[in-house]
């Protein structure tokens, strides 16, 4: 059996690792391949493969032999001419691709769930967010009828005020979400929003809206209204009940939180 030429082996190995990365991202992680991470990985992979391939003088010579041949073998004259013309052009093209002015929007990173403050001042009161609880939550066990009534009232609040953005399916796709699309209205059916949050966090976010966010949350960009301007404290607690009731999620509770930290 003929041995695979060293050069082909090197190129093949690097290509195989690249293919593996792409496959893992697309088929297993279901994520877009992050270009910068990929560049870094591939740089290391290339270095390692080259190190291995040139570990002793013989194999190093074997590796560059075909390249040497390309430069001086008379029978490779045509190929040589082609490579010598294409290589500088490729260098030009690849560099231009980097220096070329791109007119894409600047990258803006915003923290979706910034750390809440310890307390919040609204409705002329100060609420301690560490201990704040939904006054209706206990009724779920003690007085189911009153609880259902509160959920129903929360639904009315939601359909009068929130569904334009957050959607009547609570999926963040209300009929105004096409205009308020950066940041997008939260999708409450997603496991990444209310399912992870405490009711006190929601109270803070709903009462103070976009402008109540700390700077890392980009308060200037969020169209989420300041609901203390339009709703009562009672209505906010009820609409929170509705969000959990409709989606079937349970709010995260304080005890669990304490246990974690």
């Amino acid at each position: 059996m003929k041995r695979i030429p060293k050069l082909a082996l090197t190129v093949g190995l690097i290509a195989a690792v690249y293919g593996l990365f792409v496959a893992v991202f697309t088929y297993i992680l279901h994520l877009p391949v992050p270009a910068s991470v990929m560049k870094m990985y591939m740089f290391f992979v290339t270095v390692v493969v080259l190190l291995v391939m040139t570990s002793n003088e013989d194999s190093a010579r074997e590796l560059v032999a075909p390249l040497e041949a390309l430069v001086y073998q008379p029978r490779l004259r045509r190929l040589r001419a082609a490579v010598f013309i294409v290589a500088p052009l490729a260098g030009f093209g690849l560099t231009y691709n980097v220096t070329r002015p791109t007119l894409d929007a600047p990258l803006e990173l915003r923290t979706v769930h910034p750390a809440p403050p310890n307390s919040v001042k609204v409705f002329g009161k100060t609420y301690n967010l560490l201990t704040l609880e939904n006054p209706y939550r206990a009724k779920e066990k003690s007085d189911l009828e009153a609880f259902r009534q509160a959920v129903e009232e929360g639904k009315t609040v939601y359909f009068q005020n929130c569904h334009y953005c957050h959607g009547d399916k609570l999926d963040g796709k209300g009929h105004f979400s096409g205009g308020f699309n950066n940041p997008l209205p939260a999708n409450f059916t997603d496991v990444g929003t209310i399912a992870q949050l405490q009711e006190s966090f929601l109270f803070w976010r709903i009462a103070t809206g976009g402008p109540g966010l700390p700077n890392e949350g980009a308060p200037w960009a969020s169209p989420m209204p300041v609901w203390s301007n339009y709703l009562t404290e009672d209505e906010i607690w009820k609409v929170i009940l509705f969000l959990y009731d409709y989606t079937g999620y349970a709010p995260r509770v304080m005890k669990e939180e304490k246990g974690h930290s």
Binding site: P88, L89, G91, F92, L94, Y96, R100
Partner: peptide, 13 residues
């Protein structure tokens, strides 16, 4: 924008 690519191309040549 063109200078750098040109330099790289010439270096390779």
């Amino acid at each position: 924008v063109y200078l750098w690519p040109a330099i790289i191309g010439l270096l390779i040549a």
